[in-house]
Design a protein around this nucleic acid. Structure first.
Length: 418
RNA sequence: GGACAGUUGGGUGAGUUGGCUGAAACCACACCCCUGCUAAGGGUGCGUACUCUAACGGGUACCGAGGGUUCGAAUCCCUCACUGUCCGCCA
């Protein structure tokens, strides 16, 4: 959620910032109007309420002294109905305003490139050269079939479409990658945690998945619980509604969790293979940071994800997302795209974002900033998406006969020397 | 899942015959004084959010959440959530 006072104070700049993200300015105008209306309504209510309180005190005193209270009672009865009208009007305006405010995305940073779609994203740099194959490299699902690594049919049987069953070395690689990522992140200073993968609605509101994107979430029937779409949700919300000491910042956290997404809008895209699944494994980094330090930490997180890919020998590039492609809660995002020789293109494997104080305001995550409490900055990024790393390894490490080599750094994790 | 008990400020914990309690006391924390050495004693301050004021200082909301009774509710009633204990079940 954005700072409504800031929008009120500097309306024009707020408008232009959000225009970069494609937000309709009528929405902002309405927000401003409702905010002003709320203030007026509140003031009226508080005035009457103060009156009621002091008269009620008098009422008590009169009664104790045995004085006549009928006149006072009359006044108070009138006040009472007046107040309840004012109060419900405040509530109505407030909930409408809240709903509106929750639906407005974060401001993009000034450095974010202009643009409406992923075509306008800015490539920052390439790391490692894609290797030349002496044969036509296969796509991962072909390799999966050849090696008996992925059973697509039975995955569907067990659940539904877009679920898969990993077998053999693929299952082992999946586990090896998780361990490798967690160890790598630990060396970079991230503390490992293992959070619940079901979170309640208030946490999903805190990180911005709700109320706008509920359709993308799997919900538990009859409970206020959702399967998390990313470990960003539990990790960021660990300090939901808390006030940290400044000395406790930054909190650098990492976790492996499965992630669950309905992705209702993505039907027809990437239907073959395991690029886009309803359930996938991911190792996530989250930082709870002092506002002055979040840019530095952002760079560190991007570097960390890139270093992991380099350690695996996977060619990749860094892409600065343009305003239109930026996620709802993000002020700045750099995507890491890994080279897939089978598809002959770069595909997203990690996304590192600085949310600034957007999530912190929603989730009420603050720190003692001298005498007062200030909002922290929150950041998150994948390090890395496990399934997509598996795909990248399959495609980049394939041999002409369809066999797949294991990257050196993973061999210790596979209990294998060659 | 069943029974009982509870949910108050950073922590412990009073307050539950409705008004004088947004909230005692203690601890923690901050500053000051005393003292002079790793003991202690004394004083002051110390919840969050919004809002009015040039400022001093006011006002409103919040005692798990939501609703109700009442002139007035942390205190009474209802619903829900959570925590604890015992029982049941279980990796």
């Amino acid at each position: 959620m954005l700072d409504l006072k800031l929008i009120e104070r500097d309306f024009e700049s707020a408008k232009s910032k959000l225009a970069k993200k494609g937000v309709n300015e009528a929405l902002l105008n309405e927000l401003k109007e409702r905010f002003a209306a709320l203030k007026d309504a509140k003031r009226a209510f508080e005035e009457k309420r103060a009156q009621q309180k002091s008269l009620s005190k008098e009422f008590g005193a009169y009664k104790a002294q045995g004085k006549d209270i009928s006149e006072l009672k009359e006044q108070l009865d009138a006040l009472k109905s007046e107040i309840s009208t004012l109060e419900s009007s405040v509530q109505e305006i407030e909930s409408g305003l809240q709903e509106l405010a929750f639906a407005i995305p974060n401001f993009p940073d000034d450095s974010v490139p202009e643009g409406l779609s992923e075509d306008d994203n800015l490539e920052l740099k390439k790391v490692l050269e894609p290797k030349e194959f002496s044969f036509t490299p296969k796509e991962h699902w072909e390799l999966a079939e050849l090696n008996g690594w992925i059973d697509f049919e039975r995955g569907v049987k067990l659940a539904k479409s877009r679920f898969a069953l990993l077998k053999s070395d693929a299952a082992k690689l999946e586990r090896a990658l998780i361990n490798f990522f967690l160890d790598f992140n630990a060396k970079s200073g991230f503390a490992e945690v293992c959070p619940p993968v079901l979170n309640n609605s208030s946490m999903l509101l805190g990180t911005g998945q709700l109320p706008k994107f509920g359709d993308d979430l799997f919900k538990i029937e009859g409970e206020d619980l959702y399967l998390i779409p990313t470990a960003e949700v539990p990790l960021t919300n660990i300090y939901n509604n808390e006030i940290l000491q400044e000395s406790e910042l930054p909190q650098l956290l990492t976790a492996y969790t499965p992630c669950f997404r309905k992705e209702a809008g993505s039907a027809g895209r990437d239907t073959r293979g395991i690029i886009r699944q309803h359930q996938f494994d991911k190792v996530e980094m989250v930082a709870i940071a002092h506002p002055d330090r979040s840019d530095k930490i952002f760079e560190m997180m991007v570097q960390n994800a890139s270093d992991i890919l380099s350690a695996l020998g996977l060619p990749h590039r860094l892409v600065d997302l343009c305003g239109g492609d930026l996620g709802f809660s993000a002020a700045r995002t750099i995507d890491l795209e890994v080279w897939l020789p089978g598809q002959n293109k770069y595909r997203e494997i990690s996304s590192v974002s600085n949310m600034r104080d957007f999530q912190a305001r929603r989730a009420k995550i603050r720190f003692k900033d001298g005498k007062k409490n200030s909002l922290v900055h929150t950041l998150n990024g994948s390090a890395l998406a496990v399934g997509r790393t598996l795909i990248a390894i399959m495609e980049n490490y394939q041999n002409e006969d369809g066999t797949i080599d294991i990257p050196e750094v993973l061999k210790p994790y596979m209990n294998r020397n060659i």
